[in-house]
């Protein structure tokens, strides 16, 4: 279930060249300066952006192929995401956020209760996200991503908004989850400690700034 990316994203004065292959059960950490295209890389994998050239494959499933014009819509990719700030649905309860897209029936499964307990969310299930603290919101976002059946998990700075105390616990929970997760994890992070605790491999986006900014990611 390895993911294979060989693609180029061109926008205005920005060129991002990504070539990477990540094996299942490994955690790739992507680092790089601001504006180097870390989030854009995740967006191409999740299907929020299309490559300008090249292709993205999960095993033999084509996510995106600029040559043939194939483009698999995000809802069919089996990619779970935790974007910066959590991207929660503020009009829905925590329960509905966590079970989003797979129906409320999920809330009666043992897996649901397990994940809710892992992230310490039992007392918050009926709350709206707007009433939660930043750390609580991030726990909801992580719970949602861990509960969704997925083959790829994308995490964009998952612990940046957390305070030191809750960070430790959440890093442990994530570590435990990764041990049992069969898919590919790609983690964008600035944080050395987070990378050291979670990642099995690290890749840095190299940037050369000229008339156009050229960014290169190899892994």
């Amino acid at each position: 279930m390895s993911i294979k990316i060989d693609c180029l994203l061109e926008r205005n004065n920005f060129k991002l060249d990504v070539q990477l292959e990540v094996e299942p059960r490994s955690v790739l950490a992507i680092t790089g300066e601001n504006g180097s295209g870390k989030t854009s890389t995740l967006d191409m994998i999740s299907g929020l952006l299309a490559c300008t050239e090249g292709k993205i494959l999960l095993n033999d499933k084509v996510f995106d192929d600029a040559t043939t014009g194939e483009f698999l819509q995000p809802e069919f990719r089996g990619v779970s995401t935790v974007f910066q700030g959590g991207s929660l649905f503020n009009h829905l309860s925590v329960t509905r956020n966590i079970t989003f897209g797979r129906g409320i029936a999920l809330k009666d499964t043992s897996r649901f209760h397990e994940v809710v307990a892992q992230f310490n969310l039992e007392s918050l299930l009926s709350h709206k996200p707007s009433t939660l603290s930043g750390g609580q919101r991030q726990r909801v976002a992580l719970a949602r991503a861990f509960l969704a059946p997925s083959e790829v998990l994308l995490l964009d700075e998952p612990t940046t908004s957390l305070d030191v105390n809750s960070r430790e616990g959440i890093l442990k929970t994530m570590q435990n989850f990764f041990k049992t997760y069969d898919g590919v994890v790609i983690l964008v992070s600035h944080d050395g400690a987070e990378i050291a605790e979670l990642a099995t491999q690290v890749a840095k986006i190299e940037v050369s700034r000229g008339k156009t900014t050229e960014a290169k990611l190899r892994a």
Binding site: G47, L48, Q73, E75, R77, S80, T81, F100, G101
Partner: peptide
């Protein structure tokens, strides 16, 4: 986009 990645068309 998050809604889409979590399976909503």
């Amino acid at each position: 986009g998050t809604a889409r990645t979590f399976g909503a068309g």
